[in-house]
Design a protein around this nucleic acid. Structure first.
Length: 858
RNA sequence: GCCCGAGUGGCGGAAUUGGUAGACGCACCGCACUCAAAAUGCGGCGACGAAAGUCGUGCGGGUUCGAGUCCCGCCUCGGGCACCA
């Protein structure tokens, strides 16, 4: 068959025939007529034929008229660095399965696409090429947009957005001002993470193992005045409202966010510091999660870099203290945070009074206590905290056990005891267990006004200033008289100057915008006096923390998002993207949604109802990278195997959340499968609309079984198995066509039409072409999911198994509706069963008709 | 150290509520068609064994008529947090 086709294709003079796999790859400039290659699965021709159809026909533009239930599917929008790569191909293939599935189910699906187009690489390219970052950015966006269209994503192109468009960042600036006006954005001086290479500050979330998340340079500390968003105000909500994501978000993402927020419950306890010479008395509050061990506190430690330490130190000790503080400063964060390091510190010359025992204890400064966690000061309980014990042993300080656990004395073993036990040496707390003692100690402290129960978090406020150019300018004007003044709404957006190029954008430790004097110097909106713009831009994670809202009404010029449209579409029903954003983007987006809800702009607390983290695409067990030279070029793969084969390979390889190793997969096999499926459409000889009820029952059963299974599998997210079921249906249809049933049987048409619908989830071109060949109007994407006829799922006969001592000894072909008694008798009468039972006595017979009989013998 | 997740053929992976382990595919082997190759179609393919059969889902126990699935104790791998009091 195929030879005839390929021959005629060759005669047509514009087809490169690749015989080894039974399909051809033509170099046709325009869509060939179907007749030219009727029997050959010509990937290029099929792609050319449908390449622009969907966008022109508006197939994937939602109706948005309320006639159908709305659903919102979103893929994490790409950053426009060059062309699409294998990772995009994987992620967007997954998102498209959901989008297309929901469309078949009759939902009005919104599946928008846009670009996260502010960011450093554009700026670096601009410096190198003496350009404006916009040139590189928008060129890459066009390249990627073209590739997405080729990739056949069921996207609504009318909603396209770019965060670097003034029409977009005008509203990013509005968002900033909403936080600013409501006390949720503020400036403070503090030591911040500084990347010496990128010459900009970084958020905590962007420092990975002490290194810059972007460029890998070791991060240093720098004291700067910077803008922060008060994400810590929302720490409890960010934690507690994760409950509603449970089961819909991957466990690991929830776990990562919980770890990151790091809530711990404990108490603040005030210790009095005694006056010493010229130094007055002073109260110091410590945070502890173990108030039960208060009687075991044998010294106090203050963070050496906290202002408190400098305040407390006596004149006699000042010199030693300052020398120590300097020695700590030169350590990198990595060195400082190593738990392997020996404990160091210096005595501050003061003593504190333990508020419960009245005991006098020395006050030390050390770098193992962090200035910006808790209160920057701790009560040290060496018997029950390993770090305190290490310090006590290094400084020869006393160790007192107050919780008897039955383990060796920590002072001897060097191992702090942290488990359960009974309180000792602790006054009124003696005899209590740990939990009781914690509650009791907090009660005592509170009643005496010496402290209170409290909660602290690992999470820090979100540092959003960046000393870079290619981002949304912070819309604040600094005026000597009026202070920080919000840029008035009608002056938004604060546009980036478009005349800076090349070297003018190079990092200098302050934003390149500072040098644009015309831009910087403005009249104060409040008093009209001379004032200066804030020259920093916002972290690009601010841009992406609200884009999912913008998609509901991307053209709105009167609001960041239209309230009605957001009500209609949000929250996102299915969000798809990589796990690398488990903390950064997802935490920020959740925070911003909660802020906007808090301010009355939204009426839901969580932006993404369900999250799917697709795996990575590896090659040879490792992530693709330039340095390893194991990269696979997506465009070349698409050229060689076709879009559909690559998409199908991505989805079939493994469950969506697992990694795909390109060395282990076989795109040519998927191409073969698609060709096999496509050929079915040519072999259907009945007319469209023929009643399948008249068709062969066994074929119909296979069809409806596939439909039934596919629905459950799609809902369970097992997309790879959906393809396996589709393959089975293709095999069954092939068998029917080649066998006695024949291509004219209506059941064969039903089967092949079902194949086209199932295939449309991953192979849009092939599916659309099949649908066309089957005599239908496009698009197969809009075909309602065929209803499953339950009666066809019931088989006439089933194989029952007989187990003896749990092992299968016989298989019986029985009627599906066999009674328990009949099945029992049949099993007991079976020769193989009799032989296996032998002389043993049958104690019990368990029957699960029609599938199983289990004999208990002794 | 604490917290999540995962271990199934040569490989990727299947397996409703415990009920035929290995679906589907890759690789490999064979057959048909062909002068031949490719393509296509059909068949085989966990291990040991001639067969009957025995063993088999990381390891050790347990519950059950029956465990990949449930319980207890481990091991290994991947990921997150970590001098966070």
């Amino acid at each position: 068959m195929s030879r005839v086709g390929s021959k005629s294709s060759m005669e047509a003079g514009r087809v490169v025939v690749s015989h080894e796999r039974g399909f051809t790859v033509s170099e046709a400039q325009s869509a060939p007529t179907p007749e030219a290659n009727d029997d050959v699965y010509d990937v290029k021709a099929i792609e050319a034929r449908w390449g622009s159809y969907w966008e022109e026909a508006g197939t994937f533009v939602p109706l948005d008229d309320g006639s159908r239930e709305r659903r919102y599917v979103l893929d994490m929008f790409p950053y426009p660095s060059g062309d699409l790569h294998m990772g995009h191909a994987e992620a967007f293939a997954m998102g498209d399965v959901v989008s297309r599935h929901w469309r078949h189910c009759g939902y009005d699906v919104m599946h928008p696409i846009g670009w996260d187009s502010f960011g450093l690489p554009a700026e670096n390219a601009a410096i190198k090429n003496n350009q404006h970052p916009a040139e590189w950015t928008y060129k890459n966006i066009e390249t990627q947009a073209g590739s997405f269209k080729r990739y056949g994503i069921s996207a609504d192109w009318n909603r396209r957005l770019h965060t670097s468009d003034p029409e977009y960042y005008r509203w990013t600036q509005w968002l900033f001002l909403e936080l600013f006006k409501n006390g949720l954005a503020y400036r403070k001086d503090s030591p911040v993470n500084w990347c010496p290479k990128d010459q900009t500050v970084l958020a905590n979330e962007q420092v990975v193992n002490g290194k810059c998340e972007r460029c890998g340079t070791e991060v240093t500390k720098k004291s700067l005045n910077q803008w922060y968003f008060k994400i810590t105000d929302f720490a409890d909500r960010l934690l507690d409202e994760m409950d509603q994501l449970e089961g819909h978000w991957p466990d690991r993402v929830l776990s990562m966010q919980r770890n990151w927020i790091g809530r711990s419950h404990g108490a603040h306890v005030r210790f009095g510091i005694q006056a010493s010479g010229a130094q007055p008395a002073h109260d110091v509050t410590v945070f502890t999660t173990r108030p039960d061990t208060l009687f075991g506190a044998t010294f106090m430690v203050v963070a050496v870099d906290a202002p408190l330490a400098a305040k407390l130190v006596t004149d006699e000790q000042r010199e030693a203290f300052e020398a120590y503080r300097e020695s700590v400063k030169v350590l990198s964060d990595i060195e400082r945070q190593s738990s392997e390091r020996e404990k160091t510190g210096v005595f501050l010359g003061r003593t504190a009074i333990n508020p419960l025992s009245g005991e006098e204890i020395p006050v030390w400064a050390s770098d193992y206590v962090l200035a910006d966690y808790g209160t920057g000061a701790i009560m040290a309980v060496p018997a029950h905290d390993q770090r305190d014990l290490d310090f006590a042993r290094a400084m020869d300080l006393p160790v007192r056990v107050v919780l008897e656990t039955g383990e060796e004395d920590p002072a001897v073993s060097g191992v702090a005891t942290v488990g359960e036990g009974t309180l000792v040496n602790s006054g009124d707390l003696d005899g209590l267990n740990k939990a009781e003692a914690i509650a009791q100690a907090i009660g005592i402290v509170e009643s005496k006004g010496l402290g209170e129960a409290t909660t602290t978090y690992r999470l820090r406020d979100w540092l959003v200033s960046r000393q870079r150019f290619w981002g949304a300018p912070i819309p604040v004007i600094h005026c000597e008289h009026c202070g920080e003044v919000a840029v008035p709404d009608e002056q938004l957006p604060v546009r980036l100057p478009d005349d800076l190029r090349g070297e003018a954008l190079a990092p200098k430790g302050q934003s390149p915008l500072a040098a644009a004097e015309e831009w910087v110097n403005v009249a104060c909106p409040s008093c009209g006096g001379a004032a200066k713009r804030d020259t920093d831009t916002m972290d690009t994670f601010v841009d992406s923390s609200w884009y999912y809202l913008r998609f509901a009404s991307p053209q709105s010029s009167t609001a960041a998002f239209d309230a009605e449209a957001v009500k209609n579409w949000l929250p996102v029903g299915q969000y798809v993207g990589g796990v690398e954003h488990a903390i950064l983007h997802l935490l920020y987006s959740r925070f911003i949604t909660k802020v906007l809800q808090h301010l009355g702009h939204l009426d839901f607390p969580e932006p993404f109802s369900a999250l799917l983290n697709q795996g990575q695409v590896l090659n040879g067990g490792k992530a693709m990278s330039k340095s390893l030279g194991n990269g696979v070029n997506l465009g070349e793969q698409l050229d060689e195997f076709g879009v559909d084969a690559i998409r199908t390979t991505m989805v079939f390889a493994s469950p969506p959340e697992d990694d795909v190793d390109w060395a282990d997969v076989a795109p040519h096999a998927m191409q073969k499968f698609l060709a096999r499926a496509w050929r079915l459409a040519n072999d259907v000889t009945s007319q469209p609309g023929v009643d399948p009820a008249a068709g062969e029952r066994s074929v119909r059963s296979a069809t409806h079984k596939a439909l039934h299974d596919a629905l459950e599998l799609l809902d369970a997210g097992k997309f790879n198995v959906v393809i396996a079921r589709t393959m089975e249906l293709v095999n069954a249809a092939r068998k029917a066509i080649d066998g006695e049933v024949g291509g004219a049987d209506p059941a064969v048409r039903e089967a092949v039409e079902t194949v086209a619908v199932l295939l449309s989830l991953v192979a849009p071109y092939t599916a659309e072409d099949m649908w066309d060949r089957l005599g239908h109007e496009p698009s197969v994407a809009n075909v309602p999911w065929p209803a499953v006829d339950e009666s066809l799922l019931v088989e006439d006969t089933v194989t029952a198994v007989v187990q003896i001592r749990g092992k299968i000894r016989a298989k019986l072909e029985v009627a599906a509706d066999i009674s328990e008694d009949a099945l029992r008798e049949l099993a007991l009468a079976d020769d193989a069963v009799k032989r296996s039972v032998g002389d043993a006595e049958i104690v019990k017979v368990i029957v699960r008709a029609p599938k199983l009989v289990s004999l208990v013998v002794k």
